[in-house]
């Protein structure tokens, strides 16, 4: 019983990060119909920016990050993420114009590789220690399960993001963004600056990615080049597909589902001493295949 409670607790922790990455994916897909495979690096690059703020811009040294600077460092990271998102749209996506989804997908994957390579060149291919905003944990009442305070921080951050997004989608720019996503020409006829709305969506996705990067690096208490792409991107993408790809709620629900599935996979393989390599990754891919085969429109999506 206790082990399954642990599965849920860790599942929610990972799932919340998947949800943050997934919200960025869903937002960009909704606004511009592009699968952004660089979303993960919109998390890693800002996380490195945060690390630089906390270490006094020590790119390759062993300078320990100053945890007291985590809050301003996160603010910097979010700004870097937003800027990177807008740049990605303006410099790469918009000049491509109307191309097939495969072309834009390959372009974003190329950007992800490029950014990872830059990270390796600047910060070397090694792990740097990365702080959490709150250390330690607490006993879940009535059990022996220890819940990290960091898990609470991540869930609170996700809840904050959800509230902010809900408010945004009621505001004039938010509603105009939804209208642009649905029918850009009709939105333009009302005077909505369609290109600026799309850039806004990419910027917001970058900010969400940055938050995922900083909190995700905190999960491992370490940061390596390509971290968010290699650990959170595929489950987040699967969660978004499960949730219905354009659904914001679906991205979060899907993220939590994938978080719990991947932790459960680890638990099952350990319990039954199965000889299966990479159980969480395998479980995620099985879910992805199952969704694509059985319910391609996702749980909360409408068939496109």
């Amino acid at each position: 019983m206790e082990t399954w409670i642990e599965v849920v607790v860790f599942g929610l922790q990972r799932g919340a990060i998947f949800g943050l990455v997934g919200l960025g994916l869903a937002l960009v897909y909704k606004a511009t119909r592009i699968l952004n495979f660089a979303q993960g690096e919109l998390g890693t690059v800002p996380a490195f920016a945060a690390l630089m703020v906390m270490t006094g811009f020590e790119t390759v040294g062993d300078e320990v990050a100053d945890r007291g600077l985590l809050l301003p460092a996160t603010v910097v990271a979010v700004l870097v993420g937003a800027l990177l998102g807008v740049l990605l749209y303006v410099v790469v996506i918009r000049p491509l114009g109307k191309v097939s989804p495969v072309t834009s997908l390959v372009a974003t994957a190329g950007v992800a590789l490029l950014l990872t390579t830059i990270e390796i060149n600047v910060f070397e291919a090694r792990a740097r220690r990365f702080p959490r905003p709150v250390n330690g944990g607490f006993d879940l009442p009535g059990t022996d399960v220890i819940v990290d305070w960091h898990t609470v921080v991540i869930l609170a951050a996700l809840a904050g993001v959800a509230l902010a997004l809900a408010a945004f989608f009621r505001s004039a720019p938010g509603v105009a963004l939804l209208a642009t996503a649905e029918d850009p020409f009709a939105a333009e006829l009302q005077g909505v600056p369609v290109e600026r709305m799309r850039a806004l969506a990419w910027g917001a996705a970058g900010a969400l990615g940055a938050l995922a990067g900083v909190l995700g690096a905190g999960v491992f208490e370490s940061l390596t080049p390509g971290l968010v792409t290699s650990t959170f991107m595929i489950p987040a993408f699967t969660g978004v597909v499960l949730g219905g790809i354009t659904s914001m709620v679906g991205a979060v629900v899907g993220g939590f589902a994938l978080g719990i599935v991947s932790q459960a996979a680890i638990q099952i393989v350990t319990t039954y001493e199965l000889d299966v390599p990479g159980p969480p990754q395998l479980a995620v891919l099985v879910v992805l295949l199952a969704v694509l085969l059985m319910r391609p429109q996702g749980l909360l999506g409408r068939s496109a």
């Binding site: 004039a172 939804l178 209208a179 649905e182």
Partner: peptide, 14 residues
């Protein structure tokens, strides 16, 4: 070309 996924009120807001 109304915004089908938005309510009447939201369409007017746009």
């Amino acid at each position: 070309r109304v915004f089908g996924g938005l309510s009447v009120e939201r369409n007017l807001q746009v």
